[in-house]
């Protein structure tokens, strides 16, 4: 796998949360960078800070101290409108519990990010069909999430994250609710998209199945980067 240029640069990052009268430090002096096309994972047990870090990279949260620059924009300095724009235009999210819009069809769920980009109906239609084909869900286009299996729901979520061809996809425990066969299917799909579209994937996980697919493994422990492993040249 080849990568070019840093799209994420994290320097001296701290994140603290008030806990009653005390303060809980979720991230301690995190320094990391990610290049284009990486297939990387933040690995660690519950409470290690991987989701918090992923949320900051995804501009859903802001650092308490330090800097997180994502696609050239400093997350801590973005206005709500600017961070929404960053998410809308350049980021894709995949969640553990899929977070699909239950009353919308598969097509409408995948179309949603494109509605925010003000594309024409024909452009949206083509892009949605392409995305559903990538994840092998074209026959389920009119189904609603409650009619799908867990694996199918997560594939819809992947299609929704990928439909606008973002530069960066953030996946938080994407296989946690799936059985082994579905997990591998999902991961193979994401690996293929990473390879073909050069999209950067960053996972937050402690699932061995996911870890086995990662090209770069960043181990977090108590909010600090504990160790880092590369399984393929970046």
């Amino acid at each position: 796998m080849e990568t070019t240029g840093n799209i994420i640069s994290i320097k001296g990052l701290y994140k603290r949360f008030p806990m009653g009268k005390d303060v809980f430090t979720a991230l301690h002096d995190v320094n990391l960078s990610f290049g284009t096309g990486e297939f990387a994972g933040l690995i660690g047990p519950s409470g290690s800070g991987k989701t918090t870090l992923l949320n900051i990279i995804g501009s859903l949260d802001v650092p308490t101290q330090g800097e997180a620059i994502v696609l050239g924009r400093s997350i801590g300095k973005l206005s709500p409108r600017e961070s929404a724009r960053l998410r809308k235009e350049s980021l894709g999210f995949i969640f553990q519990s899929y977070n699909l819009l239950a009353v919308h069809t598969v097509y409408e769920n995948v179309e949603f990010p494109l509605l925010l980009l003000n594309l024409t109906a024909s452009e949206r239609h083509k892009m949605v069909l392409d995305a559903l084909e990538w994840v092998g869900l074209s026959p389920k286009i009119k189904s609603k999430p409650p009619q799908l299996s867990g694996g199918e729901c997560q594939r819809v979520a992947i299609a929704r994250a990928m439909v606008k061809k973002p530069l960066l996809v953030l996946a938080d425990e994407p296989t946690a609710n799936l059985d082994a066969a579905n997990s591998h299917h999902i991961l193979q799909t994401m690996e293929k998209l990473n390879r073909e579209l050069k999209t950067t994937f960053i996972f937050a996980t402690h699932d061995e199945k996911v870890i086995s697919y990662l090209k770069r493994k960043i181990y977090l422990l108590d909010g600090r980067v504990d160790n880092e492993e590369l399984t393929e040249a970046i």
């Binding site: 995804g58 859903l60 709500p80 409108r81 929404a84 724009r85 998410r87 809308k88 235009e89 999210f93 969640f95 519990s97 977070n99 819009l101 239950a102 949603f112 990010p113 925010l116 929704r160």
Partner: peptide
Amino acid sequence: QKEIGTYIALGYTRQQ
């Protein structure tokens, strides 16, 4: 609430 969070993650501001 999850849906609201999803809207925000997908690019909506809270005001939107």
